[in-house]
Structure formats: structure tokens, C-alpha cells
């Protein structure tokens, strides 16, 4: 297979775009596509300060790398959840982020250490509470969302960027369609506007890339990331849904892309207008982040809940 740009041997082929590129032209294409998505969806401008949520995985490190290359003012945020599980998952992923930043003069980042700040690691908090029993991901989502909103606000950032790719978005959409969670479907977008004090504007510049495209970018450009999944991701519904979508993609290239981009088109055409009704929000009495729960937000409640029997 030959590179479409220069005719030299291609290293990567995208069946859904009928596009094969070489070692030099693939990273170039990837960076240019990211810039286009940022502009197309009006995510942010060069004047904005961007906070990138980095996990040590391929997507978030690639995103940080590309934003720095494009000259955006992008800092990292690493949330140390204290996940060990015999494999030292958090320690290993944190080391990848530290290595990445150490190799780049302009890569600055903040670490939020959950155990140091709240007295318990994610697995400990999950074991203690009813919400987290047997499903740490539910508590994890809550903790990460809260920390991202807090650092975005306290650090004076204009926008929070995450490394979600098209496979992530398609898997979420698939799950939501299976259960007809119309409210969630209506809110699934490349840009979530800031919903008032303490809730950051959120953007997903990689939402049009397949997962194999971000992995290929990381491999070709030599970004060292953590290959292993979080130990709690094993058997997760979203991973099962990704598998099903990939099976369909195998037989009909472009299936995932059409599924997700179809959602964006439907939204643009106004399909979800009636569903996008506003929920009543008020500031949490403890941390000040907007919440729909009365009194304290769900995050602040988590740390006050007595151990479940």
C-alpha cells in the first residue's frame, strides 16, 4: 500500500476514509484533522487556556501532544485515583504522564491526589459506599467529574478537553440507544457548554477519530502510554459495546463513523430540541459546584456517607 500524498510505503490505512498514509504524512494529517475539528465545532481559540484531562492512556496524551504542537495554551490534569489492584495501575499511569511532561518544555500539569485530599483512594471509597459497591466506575466518574470542574475553575481555565474518540462516543451512544435514554442522547455532543458557575465547558477534539487512529498516532510519534486498561474496565459494558461495533465495522467499514456522525447531524437538524430542557441547578452548600441534588452535591455526600453494612 502506498501513501496517497507521496507514494512511499504507507504505514497506516483507514478503510472508512479509503486513505493510506506514510510515517511522515499520517501524523501531519492527524494534527490537521484535530485543528479542523476544533474550528468546526468552535471548541476554543488560541487565546483560551485549555485544561487537558490526561490519564496516561494513548488518547489523552496524544491530545495533549497535538494541542501543544498546534500552539494552544494547554496544561494537563492528572487525577490519581490510587488504583493498585496488584498491578500498580495508578502509579504506572501517573509515571507515563510525568515522563511525557518531562520530555516537553511547555507541558505543565496539575495532579489531584484523591487519597491525599479526601483520605481514601477510589477503591476504598467505592467499597465504603452504597453507590460504589461492586461498581467502582460509578464513584470514579463522580470523582473525576468533580476534580475536572474544580481545577478548571480554580486554575482559571476557559475549557476542559478530554481525549474521547469516536469509538468511545459510539459505544456510549449504542448503550443509550439500547435503553432509549433520550435525555442522555440529547446531551451527547463534541462541545458541552459551561452550565453556570463551577461547571466547566467541555470539549472532545478527537471525537471524529477512530480509536485505532489515535493509537497509530501515538505509536508512530513515539508517545509512551499505558497499554493496560484500568483493572476495573475488564468486562465493562462500554468495552462489550465497542466489540460489537467493531464486528460490524469489520464487515462494513464506516459503520461506526456513520452511527456517530448521524447523531451529530440529527442534532443539527433539531431532532432533540424538545428534549434539551433545562434542569434546575443550584450551588452545592459545601463546594459550590452546581448540582441538581438539594443541599450537598453527590460528590460531597460521597465523603460523608457512613460505611454501608
Amino acid at each position: 500500500m502506498k501513501c496517497r500524498k507521496c507514494g512511499r510505503p504507507a504505514v497506516f490505512n483507514m478503510r472508512q476514509h479509503k486513505l493510506a498514509l506514510c510515517q511522515v504524512h499520517y501524523p501531519e494529517w492527524f494534527v490537521a484533522q484535530t485543528a479542523r475539528a476544533i474550528e468546526k465545532y468552535h471548541m476554543f481559540t488560541p487565546d483560551d487556556r485549555v485544561l487537558v484531562a490526561v490519564s496516561g492512556g494513548k488518547d489523552s496524551l496524544a491530545l495533549w501532544d497535538v494541542l501543544l504542537q498546534l500552539g494552544y495554551r494547554a496544561d494537563g490534569l492528572y487525577i490519581d485515583l490510587g488504583i493498585d489492584d496488584g498491578v500498580g495501575y495508578s502509579a504506572a499511569s501517573r509515571a507515563k504522564v510525568e515522563q511525557f511532561a518531562a520530555a516537553r518544555a511547555n507541558a505543565h500539569f496539575t495532579i489531584v491526589d484523591i487519597k491525599a485530599e479526601y483520605g481514601e483512594t477510589l477503591p476504598e471509597a467505592a467499597r465504603r459506599t452504597r453507590r460504589g459497591r461492586g461498581k467502582p466506575c460509578s464513584v470514579c466518574g463522580l470523582i473525576k467529574r468533580h476534580a475536572m470542574n474544580r481545577i478548571t475553575r480554580d486554575g482559571g481555565y476557559d475549557v476542559l478537553a478530554t481525549g474521547h474518540n469516536l469509538d468511545d462516543e459510539a459505544a456510549v451512544l449504542f448503550g443509550n440507544v439500547l435503553h432509549w435514554q433520550t435525555g442522555y442522547i440529547a446531551r451527547q455532543a463534541p462541545v458541552l457548554p459551561a452550565s453556570g458557575e463551577g461547571l466547566a465547558r467541555k470539549v472532545k477534539p478527537f471525537c471524529r477519530f477512530y480509536e485505532r487512529e489515535t493509537a497509530a498516532y501515538a505509536l508512530i510519534t513515539g508517545i509512551d502510554y499505558i497499554y493496560d486498561e484500568c483493572p476495573y474496565a475488564v468486562g465493562a459494558t462500554s468495552i462489550r459495546h465497542k466489540g460489537i461495533l467493531n464486528q460490524m465495522e469489520e464487515e462494513a467499514p464506516g459503520t461506526k463513523m456513520q452511527f456517530y456522525l448521524g447523531l451529530l447531524r440529527a442534532r443539527k437538524e433539531g431532532l432533540f430540541r424538545e428534549l434539551a430542557e433545562e434542569v434546575e441547578l443550584h450551588p452545592c452548600a459545601n463546594c459550590g459546584q452546581l448540582t441538581s441534588a438539594p443541599g450537598l452535591c453527590t460528590f460531597c455526600r460521597l465523603w460523608r456517607e457512613a460505611p454501608a453494612p
Binding site: E211, R212, Y227, E229, C230, Y232, A233, A236, K242, G243
Partner: peptide, 8 residues
């Protein structure tokens, strides 16, 4: 072979 799927 490198897995491209990550997540949770």
C-alpha cells in the same frame, strides 16, 4: 499486536 481499545 497492540490493542487499540482502552477505556471503561
Amino acid at each position: 499486536l497492540v490493542a487499540v481499545i482502552s477505556g471503561g
